[in-house]
Amino acid sequence: MADSRRADARRNHTRILAVAEAEVATRGAAASLEQIARTAGVGSATVRRHFPTRRALLEAVSRRRIEALCARARDLAERGDSREALLEWLGEVVGYCVTAAGLATALSYDAAGADPAHGNACSAALEEAAEPLLERAARDGAVTEGVTVEDLITLSVGIALATEHHRDPAARADELFRLTVAGLSPERARRGSQGPLKA
Score class of each variant (00 low, 15 high):
Ala100Asp: 14
Ala130Ser: 08
Pro186Met: 05
Ile36Met: 09
Arg190Thr: 11
Cys97Leu: 11
Asp81Leu: 01
Thr53Cys: 09
His118Thr: 15
Ala124Val: 08
Ser123Val: 05
Ile153Cys: 06
Ala129Gln: 09
Ala30Met: 14
Glu131Gly: 05
Glu23Cys: 11
Pro169Glu: 11
Pro169Val: 12
Ala171Arg: 13
His50Ala: 10
Glu88Asn: 06
Arg5Pro: 00
Glu84Cys: 06
Ala111Cys: 08
Ser62His: 10
Thr144Met: 09
Ala18Val: 00
Glu34Thr: 15
Ala137Gly: 01
Ala100Tyr: 12
Ala100Asn: 11
His166Gln: 11
Cys97Thr: 06
Thr154His: 08
Met1Gln: 13
Leu155Val: 14
Pro132His: 04
Gly80Met: 07
Leu58Thr: 02
Arg188Pro: 03
Asp140Leu: 04
Gly95Gln: 12
Arg55Glu: 12
Gly183Tyr: 00
Glu164Ala: 14
Gln35His: 15
Ile66Gly: 00
Arg15Tyr: 04
Arg15Pro: 02
Arg27Asn: 14
Ser44Phe: 04
Ala130Phe: 04
Val19Leu: 06
Asp110Phe: 04
Ala199Glu: 01
Ile66Lys: 01
Val24Asp: 05
Pro132Asn: 11
Ala182Ile: 04
Ala117Ser: 14
Ala114Phe: 00
Glu128Val: 15
Thr105Val: 15
Ala2Pro: 02
Glu145Thr: 12
Leu103Glu: 03
Ala22Ser: 10
Arg54Leu: 12
Ala9Met: 12
Leu103Gln: 07
Thr39Asn: 02
Asp81Asn: 13
Ala18Leu: 03
Phe51Leu: 07
Cys97Val: 03
Ala112Ser: 07
Asp168Lys: 03
Arg48His: 08
Thr180Pro: 00
Arg178Thr: 06
Leu69Gly: 07
Val149Met: 12
Gly183Lys: 00
Ser4Cys: 00
Pro116Thr: 07
Ala112Asp: 07
Gly141Trp: 07
